[in-house]
Design a protein around this nucleic acid. Structure first.
Lengths: 128, 128
DNA sequence: CAGAATCCAGCTCGATACTG
DNA sequence: CAGTATCGAGCTGGATTCTG
């Protein structure tokens, strides 16, 4: 707890750490960042790439990401308009950090699943 | 994309990576894990420590964390009962990973805030 | 193609009250 | 102290429809 914005109680509405956490907590945001890691992608392409997004959530999330400076938007004046989204350098550093989490998930999911089974089994016995 | 559970499209309901992400996305879960990092803490103590939790969310989140094997619960048979929650080794590895995110937040929040200002300023001009 | 706007079903979460 | 149970307001997000 030696940082300017103290953890773990950095969640007061006034504290901006919360803002970042909320962003990462957003399923679609993480997915979008990942999809843009290799190259710029168009709106509709993203829609197909990210299975299950509604166009509302896609548009909404892209707008937030752009506002946060994590993604940049470029409208190319073709007919009809083409819009390319790409990840910014800032977004890339965040993405790298999030990757740490994904790796944790992949390497520890077995333990989590096992713990769940044991827990549920314990409840079974009590119920009986 | 060389992992067993492919990213970024690891979000299908069947894919357990999602489960972990959802856990991390949970504000209270992160806060609880942080609060337990030093030593075991009792329920009511947690309630005071974590400003703004309802006892419902605290109880609910603790239960999930316990089920996932991230937190362990020990009931001490005093009168009235005392219950101590502590972080497990598994929970500690997750917490360490999440810390990376918190550090990112602290070191980059300035850039994010600045980007937001610029974005909002841009909208202003259009509206005018 | 790239969105904006509207409508509403469902789930989350806080508040409140009660229990062992 | 350590919870559980219930209820309702509010927000989230999907489906649908429409525009430049």
């Amino acid at each position: 707890m030696k940082t300017a914005c103290p953890r773990p109680n950095a969640y007061a509405a006034t504290c901006p750490t919360r803002l970042v956490l909320d962003r990462v907590a957003d399923k679609w945001a993480v997915l979008i960042l990942g999809s843009l890691s290799e190259e710029p992608v168009r709106f509709d392409e993203l829609r197909r790439l990210i299975e299950g997004v509604s166009q509302k959530m896609l548009s909404q999330t892209l707008k937030s990401l752009e506002r946060d400076g994590l993604v940049s938007r470029e409208a190319i004046p073709t007919v009809p308009v083409t819009v390319e989204y790409s990840i910014t350098p800032l977004g890339r550093t965040l993405s790298a950090t999030v990757d740490g989490l994904l790796i944790w998930a992949e390497t520890h999911i077995d333990q989590v699943l096992k713990a769940q089974k044991q827990y549920d089994a314990g409840l079974q016995r009590k119920a009986a």
